[in-house]
Design a protein around this nucleic acid. Structure first.
Lengths: 325, 325
DNA sequence: GCGCATTGTCGAATCAGTTCGACAATATTG
DNA sequence: CAATATTGTCGAACTGATTCGACAATGCGC
C-alpha cells in the first residue's frame, strides 16, 4: 500500500537499517550513500509510519491539549490559546491532539495510556482540579496552564493576574486618581471561584489600599443592561470615582460607549484585555494585556523540555504588559 | 515499561492472541475466558498501544481538523466549530488532531503521509482552495467544510448562506417592510472574496428584489465608529429604511445600542448570528442562526462514513433556523 | 462408540519501523 | 608493513499489537 522503508532501501540499493540511520543520523553514513538514500526518499515520497516508529522509540511527536468541558459562551475566550498553542507546537515540531475532559479524566487516560501522546498540556487549570493528580499518577510529562492548589510536582505556567490588577491600579494612581472602580468578570465567574478573576481584582484593590485610595468593585454581565447596572452601582457607591479598571473583554466596548453616553467620557479607563480589543474601541484605551501567545508558547516549550528530560522551572508567571493609549 | 498484551496474557493464563480476540471480538471465546481476561485487563489497567495497533489495522482512530492559517481577530469565530467538532468526534469514538496549513499543505501531507490520521476534516474551505486537490491526490478520506469551486470528488458540508439571507428578507417582507438594509461583514471579508459573506448578502437582496422591495447594503467594521458609519450610510442611501438585516456578530450589540441612541429603536432588526448572541442583547432580536454544532457533527459523521467505506452524499447544505424574538 | 462438525485456544507470521552486534574495508599508528 | 582503530554497511532481533492456520477438546448424529 503505502511506501515503506523497505521500498526506499531497494530503490537506493541499501539495507533497511541504512535508510533508518540516514533518517535518524544515529550512525555515520558516507555522504554518497546519504545523497542516494535521500534522493530515493524524495522520489518515492516516503514518510515513515508514525505508529511503527512510535512503537520502538516510545515517541509520537504529538502532545495533547486538554480542555475542560465548559459549554456556553465561555467558549469564545479560548480560541486564541488554541491558536497560539497550535503554532507554538508546530514550531517545536510537535502535533497537537485536542482532548476534552468529559468526566474529568477518561480522554486523558485513554490518550496517555495508549501512548498516543508524549505529553499533556492542561488548560484552564482551576484551584481544585483533579487533572494534575491524574497526570502525576500516569507518570506522564505534563504542563499545567493556570494555577492549581496542588501542582503535584508538575510545572505550571500562568499569567500574573495579581500583577495585572496591581499595574492597572498603579497606572491610575500615578495619574492622580484616588477614587478608582474595578469592573470585573460576570458574577458567574466569581461564583465558580475562578482564581484568576479574584487575583486580578485583589491585586488592584491591594495596590489602591496601600496608597490610601478608595477602591470599589463589582462584577458585570457583558450586556448593555449589565454594563449600565455595573456602572450605576459603582458611581452610586463612590460618587467621586474618576478612574476605572475594566477586566471584562466583552463588556469593554459597551462600557466605553456608555460612559460617553452618560457624559462621563472624562473617566480614566484602564482595561485588562487583549491588545486588539483595546485598540478597536471608539476611544482607544490604555490597557494591560495578557501575553496569550507567550503563555502558550512557554507552555509548549516547557512540555517539550519535560518530554526530553530537561529540568524545567516549576512555576512561570508571565508579566502583564502595560500599553498606554 | 508500559503494560503490554503479553503481560495481560500471562496474568490471565492465556496466549496473546486470545487476549486480542477478547478485545476485538473477532473470534468466539468462552464466557469464562472472556471474564478472566477482562479482569486481568482491568487489574493491570491495560490499554493497547495505539501505534502498534495502527501498524496492523491501518487505523488510528484519529481524524485531523485542518484550519487555515489566519491570524488576527478573525480567529474568534472559529472556537465554536472546534468545540462542536471535538465533541462530535468524541461521540464518534474518534480523537481530533489539529493542523494548520502553514504553507497550505505541509501539515496535512505530514499527518496523512505518516499515517497519523484516518481522515481529514478541512475547515473554512474557500472558493479557490488548494487543499481539496491535495487530499484527493493523497487518496485520503476527507470532508470539506465550506464550498469550494471544485470539490475534486470529496463530500462537502456547508451552511446554506443564500437561504439565510433569503429567510431574513422574507421575514421582514412578511412583516410589511419594503425598505430593508443589509449590514454585513467587515470590508476585509468581502475584499478577500469569502463566498459565504457574498451568498448571505445576495440571498437577501435577491429575495427583496423579487418582491419589488428596496435593498441597500454595506460592509461594517465591528467597532463603535464602524457601526455609526455603516448605519449613517444605510439611512442616507435609503431614508425610508425600516428593516435591517445584520450579518455581523460582533457589531450586533453596537447596532442595537446605536439604533436606540439615534431614536430609531423602531427599526426592525433581524440578525444572522448564533442564538446566544441574539439573546444576550439589551433588546433581544429575531435571528437566523447557523447550526454550528450540526455542521461539525455532520462533517464528523460524513468523515467517519468515508473512512468506513460507506458512500456519502456529496453535498450537504444545512438549513438556517429562524428564531422569532 | 465412531466419525464429523463446532468451538475455543494457541503458535507463528506479519506489520513498519529502530537498534545492536558483527564484519568488511579503509585509515592511522608504531 | 603489520597491528590496531575507525568508518560504513548489513543482517537479525526487537517493539506491541493483529490475524491466519493448526489443532485439541467438546457436542452431535447415527
Amino acid at each position: 500500500m503505502a511506501v515503506t522503508i523497505a521500498d526506499v532501501a531497494k530503490h537506493a540499493g541499501v539495507s533497511r537499517s541504512t535508510v533508518s540511520y540516514v533518517l535518524s543520523g544515529n550512525r555515520s553514513i558516507s555522504a554518497e550513500t546519504i545523497a542516494r538514500v535521500e534522493a530515493s526518499i524524495e522520489a518515492l515520497e516516503f514518510r515513515p509510519h508514525a505508529g511503527a516508529r512510535s512503537i520502538r522509540t516510545g515517541r509520537t511527536g504529538v502532545i495533547a491539549m486538554a480542555l475542560p468541558l465548559v459549554h456556553g459562551p465561555h467558549n469564545q475566550v479560548q480560541m486564541p490559546y488554541v491558536w497560539a498553542a497550535l503554532t507554538a507546537a508546530q514550531e517545536a515540531g510537535l502535533k497537537l491532539l485536542m482532548l476534552t475532559d468529559d468526566d474529568g479524566a477518561t480522554a486523558i487516560r485513554d490518550a496517555v495510556g495508549s501512548a498516543m501522546v508524549d505529553g499533556v498540556m492542561v488548560m484552564e487549570v482551576q484551584h481544585k482540579d483533579p487533572r494534575p493528580k491524574l497526570l502525576r499518577s500516569l507518570k506522564c510529562p505534563a504542563v499545567l496552564v493556570g494555577t492549581p492548589a496542588n501542582p503535584h510536582g508538575l510545572p505550571y505556567v500562568d499569567f500574573d493576574f495579581v500583577a495585572s490588577g496591581r499595574t492597572c491600579a498603579e497606572h491610575l494612581l500615578e495619574r492622580g486618581h484616588t477614587h478608582v472602580g474595578f469592573l470585573g468578570q460576570p458574577p458567574e465567574t466569581y461564583r465558580r471561584g475562578l482564581a484568576y478573576a479574584e487575583h486580578a481584582r485583589d491585586g488592584a484593590l491591594a495596590a489602591l489600599a496601600e496608597e490610601g485610595a478608595t477602591g470599589t468593585w463589582t462584577a458585570c454581565e457583558p450586556s448593555s443592561g449589565g454594563v449600565v447596572d455595573a456602572l450605576t452601582d459603582l458611581v452610586t457607591r463612590d460618587p467621586e470615582l474618576t478612574g476605572l479598571i475594566v477586566y471584562n473583554e466583552r463588556a469593554l466596548p459597551l462600557v466605553v460607549d456608555r460612559l460617553a453616553g452618560l457624559g462621563r467620557a472624562d473617566v480614566d479607563v484602564v482595561a485588562i484585555c487583549p491588545d486588539d480589543a483595546a485598540d478597536r474601541l471608539a476611544r482607544p484605551v490604555t490597557s494591560v494585556s495578557l501575553p496569550v501567545e507567550e503563555l502558550a508558547r512557554t507552555a509548549v516549550q516547557r512540555l517539550a523540555g519535560v518530554i526530553n528530560g530537561v529540568a524545567q522551572p516549576s512555576v512561570t508567571m508571565l508579566a502583564p504588559i502595560l500599553k498606554v493609549r
